Amino acid sequence: MLSYQHAYHAGGPADVHKHVALARLLAAMTAAPAPLRYMETHAGRGLYDLAGPETAKTREAAEGIAVADLSGEVLEGVLAEVRAGFGPDAYPGSPVIAAHMLRDRDEMRLMELHPAEHAALAELLPGGGVERRDGYEGVLAHTGGRGLVLVDPSYEVKTEYAEAGAFVRALVARWPEVVVLVWYPVLRAGRHAELLAELEPLGAVVDEVSFRLKGGAGMLGSGLAAVNLPEGVRLSGPSDLRIWTKKKGGATA
């Protein structure tokens, strides 16, 4: 949706869940010598100011990255590098995380249809393969080789769950070896079940974490579904990921 802007949700618990997994995947896939093609269907602006009015309005970052324990995570190092360059309130979106982790021989293509978000991303990552086009159509136009695709729509319209699932099935049919990471919100309406039903035949690995965003008035949790997940990569888990450990009490997931 062209009305959606991710700045209001940047650094929230769902972002942390998604970005921890993405950084793990990128680390694993760039460990192999062959070039990697990295693509996103809904890239956003790439970099966010957690001291800005958007995050002040929702306060999601205060319940996410502000209380996250990233000790030992790949994302911990990326976040430190980004803040060294852009200031202590900077938070990287997935395009910037990828830009910091990809090698010279790798390729990045980022799809973003929102005009303001596209303009900001293109300015931030000149030469970063930023395209203003429908994300699903754009990714399908660039298949082949070793690949990792992040599917991260806004889900503002209820049909987007089934549409995202149908896209992943079409993508894998055309590009069987591609690794796909799909993020989705866990809401009371439970519409993510439509997405998971589409991905089940592909053997997707599903990971969900629960949290009480905005005192239980917001999302109930965050979900990830991975197709062709590389061996040895875990999306998250209480044994090795402590992102929900509160600094001032609270439960862990």
Rank of each mutant, 00 (worst) to 15 (best):
L187C: 04
T41K: 02
T252W: 13
A225M: 07
H9W: 03
V205F: 08
Y38M: 13
V78Y: 13
M39Q: 14
W183C: 12
A90D: 07
E73K: 01
G44A: 08
P35V: 13
L124C: 11
L121H: 07
V233D: 05
T55D: 10
H118E: 10
A99C: 00
R234T: 15
L22S: 06
G72K: 00
M101V: 04
G190M: 04
D106C: 07
L125P: 02
E156Y: 01
M39Y: 06
A251G: 09
S71R: 14
H142N: 15
G221S: 11
A251F: 12
D207P: 06
V74G: 03
P13N: 15
A68Q: 02
G249D: 10
G128E: 10
L150P: 01
A80D: 06
L241T: 13
E208S: 07
G64F: 00
H19D: 09
A225Q: 08
V82Y: 00
G11T: 01
H19W: 03
T252C: 11
V186W: 03
L181N: 00
L26D: 09
H9Y: 10
E137Q: 15
G87S: 07
L110I: 03
Y184I: 06
V179F: 06
P13E: 11
G138A: 12
F211K: 00
T41Q: 02
D106I: 03
W183F: 14
G250R: 13
I65M: 01
T143W: 01
G215Q: 05
R234G: 12
A164L: 03
A170H: 03
V209M: 13
V233H: 10
H19V: 09
D15C: 12
R188F: 08
G190Y: 08
L79P: 00
R191C: 04
P201S: 11
D15T: 11
K247L: 15
S94M: 10
D134W: 01
Y4A: 11
Y136P: 10
S94A: 15
G64R: 03
